[in-house]
Amino acid sequence: MKFKNPCEKANHICDKSQYNEASFWEKVRLNLHLIYCKFCREYSANNQKLTKSIKDSKIKTLCNEDKGAIKEKLYQEMKK
């Protein structure tokens, strides 16, 4: 991925680390950046808060098959 500026790069690593997909060195880079960048610190904090909220809320989703079954019923009724 290409980045226009260091903040974009930092935010990308921050996004990845919300899914545990950032490498060790990426995290080091992110933290170095956060030391001097107030905006990215803010973004990181909000991002972590969002991850925690989603985890706490225990949202469940219907899988595609289930949605498909409901859609089918609805569409059939719409045709009538």
Binding site: K60, T61, L62, I70, E77, M78
Partner: peptide, 30 residues
């Protein structure tokens, strides 16, 4: 459907029942 599902599942506690209720809801809405 995800919104309705999360609303329903905590109230009926059964995946199949919740799914039926949701499709009933959409049909009634129609």
């Amino acid at each position: 459907s995800d919104y309705l599902y999360n609303y329903t599942i905590v109230r009926v506690n059964d995946h199949e029942v919740a799914q039926d209720i949701i499709s009933d809801t959409f049909l009634a809405g129609l």
